[in-house]
C-alpha cells in the first residue's frame, strides 16, 4: 500500500493565459478524509479533473494510490469512485439504467452481480424507490444522489467527491456525512471538495485550502486551526486597565470593547492572562479563549472579499 492515496507535485494547469492551478503539492494520506476547500474559481474542480486524467496538466505530476496518472488510469481508476462537478446522466434513461450503463462500461465489473450492485448503490443513496423514474424527472437532490450512487457501484479505495452535498436537503447532507464516515471506516480514502466549512469541519481529518490556483495551507484539521491566531477576551468594567495588562503580557492586536479587552494570545499561555489581571487588581467578570473555527481560518487565508478572482 502506498503511503499517500493522492499526491501531486508542482501540479499546474493553464487555460490560455489563465492559470487555473498553480504548482500545488497536494498530499492526502491513505485513510484520510481530505477536505478540499477554496472559494469559487479557485481551481478545485480543475485539480480534480487532473487527478482523474480528464485534463492534462501543463506541468507537474499526479500519483493516485501509488500509480502515476494518466498513465496508470486503466489499473487505478477501477478502484476510484468519482463525482466531478455535479451529476451528468442520460435524461431519457432511468436512474437504474444509467447506473447499469456505467457498470457495463467497466471491464473489471462482473456482469452477473451488476443488477445487485446497482440496486445496492441506489439503496445506499436512498433512491431505490425512484430507481425506475427517468433521470430528467429527477429533482436536483435526486440527481446529486444518483451521481454519488454511481461512485459507489464498486468497493473503492479512493473516493473523489466534488461538492457532494450540493443541492441536498438537510437529511441528504447528513447522510452524505454519515456515508463519508462509514466509507472512511471501511478503509477508503476520501477527498471531498466543499464550500460548506462546518460540513468539512465535522467530517474531515485533513484539509487543504485553495485560493486563486494555489494551495495556501494543508494538513490535519488541528494543525490548520493552529495556524490562525487564538484570541483571549477579558470581561471587566475596567477595559482600559485590562488592555494595558494584556499588552504588558505580550498579547498582540489588543483592543478594548464595551466592558471587555481582547488580544491575540500568540505564545502567551491563557491561564497567565487571568492571573496577571487579578494580580493587577482588575475585577475579572469573565474570560474566554476563542479558538478559531475553520471558517475563521478560511477567511483569514483567502480574504473577506466576495468577488471571484478572475
Amino acid at each position: 500500500m502506498p503511503p499517500t492515496a493522492v499526491a501531486t507535485t508542482g501540479l499546474t494547469k493553464r487555460f490560455g493565459h489563465q492559470v487555473a492551478v498553480d504548482g500545488i503539492d497536494l498530499e492526502a494520506p491513505v485513510g484520510a478524509v481530505y477536505g478540499f476547500l477554496g472559494p469559487n474559481g479557485s481551481g478545485k474542480t480543475t485539480t480534480i479533473r487532473m487527478l482523474l486524467g480528464l485534463v492534462a496538466p501543463t506541468a507537474g505530476g499526479v500519483r493516485i494510490l501509488g500509480e502515476p496518472m494518466p498513465a496508470g488510469a486503466g489499473r487505478v481508476l477501477p478502484r476510484v469512485g468519482a463525482l466531478v462537478e455535479g451529476p451528468a446522466f442520460h435524461p431519457y434513461l432511468s436512474g437504474r439504467a444509467n447506473l447499469a450503463r456505467l457498470d457495463a462500461a467497466d471491464r473489471t465489473s462482473d456482469p452477473r452481480t451488476s443488477r445487485r450492485r446497482v440496486d445496492a448503490a441506489l439503496d445506499r443513496v436512498g433512491l431505490l424507490a425512484a430507481a425506475g423514474k427517468r433521470y430528467r424527472a429527477y429533482s436536483l437532490g435526486m440527481r446529486q444522489r444518483l451521481a454519488i450512487g454511481a461512485a459507489l457501484l464498486q468497493p473503492r479505495d479512493l473516493l473523489v467527491l466534488d461538492e457532494p452535498t450540493n443541492g441536498l436537503d438537510p437529511q441528504g447532507t447528513r447522510e452524505v456525512r454519515t456515508l463519508v464516515g462509514s466509507l472512511a471506516d471501511e478503509g477508503s480514502t476520501v477527498l471531498v471538495s466543499s464550500h460548506l466549512l462546518s460540513e468539512v469541519e465535522q467530517m474531515c481529518s485533513h484539509v487543504g485550502v485553495m485560493h486563486v490556483g494555489r494551495l495556501l495551507a494543508q494538513g490535519t484539521v488541528t494543525d490548520i486551526r493552529r495556524t490562525t491566531d487564538v484570541g483571549a477576551t477579558i470581561e471587566t468594567d475596567q477595559p482600559q486597565e485590562a488592555a494595558r495588562v494584556l499588552r504588558e503580557l505580550g498579547l498582540r492586536d489588543v483592543r478594548t470593547g464595551h466592558g471587555s479587552a481582547t488580544g491575540v494570545l500568540g505564545e502567551v499561555a491563557p491561564e497567565k492572562v487571568v492571573a496577571a489581571c487579578v494580580h493587577a487588581g482588575i475585577p475579572v467578570l469573565g474570560f474566554r479563549v476563542e479558538s478559531p473555527s475553520l471558517e475563521d481560518v478560511f477567511v483569514s487565508l483567502t480574504g473577506e472579499g466576495f468577488d471571484v478572482s478572475g
Binding site: R49, L52, P78, V84, A88, F89
Partner: peptide, 14 residues
C-alpha cells in the same frame, strides 16, 4: 454535452 463523457472516462473507459 450531457457531461456523461467525463463519467465514462473515469469508469475508466480508455
Amino acid at each position: 454535452n450531457l457531461g456523461t463523457l467525463r463519467y465514462l472516462l473515469v469508469v475508466p473507459v480508455a
